[in-house]
Lab assay of single mutants.
Amino acid sequence: NKFNKELQWATWEIFNLPNLNEEQVKAFIDSLRDDPSQSANLLAEAKKLNDAQA
């Protein structure tokens, strides 16, 4: 299933962003679980936040 692979990839990527704190990671993962179809958008937002906090 396409969404499942995207969800797994986005989850792994978010867990490995070095500049997000635990609460931010949890919030993004919760959002992914709530709406897996938004995984690409949520990953992009997480990466933006990660870069901003570098």
Rank of each mutant, 00 (worst) to 15 (best):
L43T: 05
L43G: 01
A46K: 00
N19R: 02
F28K: 00
E23V: 06
F15P: 02
L20D: 00
L42H: 04
V25T: 07
R33G: 12
F3T: 14
E22R: 08
I14P: 02
N41K: 11
A52F: 13
L49S: 03
V25P: 00
K48Q: 11
A52Y: 10
F28M: 04
W12L: 13
E45S: 08
L32K: 00
A27Q: 12
D35T: 06
F28T: 01
P36Q: 04
S39L: 05
K47G: 05
L32Y: 02
A52I: 10
A27T: 12
A44R: 08
D30R: 06
D51E: 09
N19L: 04
N50Y: 01
N50D: 05
L32A: 04
F28A: 02
D51N: 08
K48N: 08
N16G: 11
W12P: 03
D30P: 00
A40Y: 11
W12G: 13
K5V: 06
L20A: 00
A10L: 10
F3S: 15
A40S: 09
S37N: 06
W9G: 04
N50E: 01
F15Y: 15
E23I: 12
E6V: 07
A27V: 09
Q24N: 02
N16F: 04
L43M: 06
I29A: 04
A10I: 14
N41D: 09
F3D: 14
V25G: 02
L20E: 00
N1S: 04
E23G: 12
A46W: 01
D30W: 04
F28D: 00
V25K: 14
K47P: 00
L42A: 04
W9Y: 10
F3N: 15
F15V: 14
D51W: 07
A54F: 08
P36W: 05
S37A: 09
L7D: 04
D34W: 13
K48S: 12
N41S: 14
L20V: 01
K48D: 06
L20W: 01
L43P: 00
L17S: 02
T11G: 04
I29F: 05
P36G: 04
A44G: 07
A27E: 07
P18G: 11
A44D: 10
L42I: 15
E45N: 07
A46Y: 03
E23Y: 09
D35G: 04
F3K: 13
T11W: 07
K47Y: 13
E45K: 11
R33I: 15
I14G: 02
L17T: 00
E22P: 13
K47M: 07
Q24T: 03
Q8S: 05
D34T: 12
L20I: 04
E23A: 12
R33F: 15
L20S: 00
E6G: 03
N21E: 07
W12Q: 15
E13F: 13
R33A: 14
A52K: 11
N16P: 01
A44T: 07
S37T: 09
K47N: 06
N1I: 04
N21G: 06
F15M: 15
N50H: 03
F28P: 00
W9Q: 14
F3G: 14
L32G: 01
L7N: 02
R33Q: 15
E23W: 12
F15G: 14
T11S: 09
L32D: 00
A46N: 00
N4M: 11
N4G: 14
N19F: 11
D34L: 13
R33L: 14
S31P: 01
L42R: 05
W12R: 12
E22T: 12
A27P: 01
E6D: 12
K2Y: 12
A52G: 08
F3L: 14
I14R: 00
E13L: 12
N50P: 01
L32V: 06
T11P: 03
N1Q: 07
A52V: 07
L17N: 01
T11V: 14
L43N: 01
N16E: 07
L32E: 00
A44W: 08
A52W: 09
W12M: 14
N4K: 04
E13V: 13
N21V: 06
S31F: 10
A40R: 13
L17A: 01
N19S: 11
S37I: 05
N16V: 05
Q8N: 06
A54Q: 13
A44M: 15
A40I: 13
S37F: 10
D30H: 11
L32H: 01
D51I: 07
Q38S: 07
A27G: 12
A52Q: 12
N50A: 04
N1F: 00
S31A: 15
F15W: 13
N50I: 01
K5P: 14
Q53K: 05
Q24R: 01
A52L: 13
Q8L: 13
N19E: 03
L7W: 07
Q38E: 07
K47I: 09
A54Y: 07
E22A: 13
N16K: 10
K5L: 03
S39A: 14
A54D: 09
D51Y: 10
Q38F: 06
D30Q: 11
L32I: 08
P18S: 07
W12H: 13
N4R: 04
V25H: 04
K26V: 05
P36Y: 04
Q38V: 06
S39T: 12
N4F: 14
N50F: 01
D51L: 11
Q53G: 04
F15I: 13
W12K: 14
Q8R: 05
S37V: 05
L42Q: 04
D51Q: 13
L20K: 00
A46V: 02
A40P: 09
N19P: 00
E45V: 08
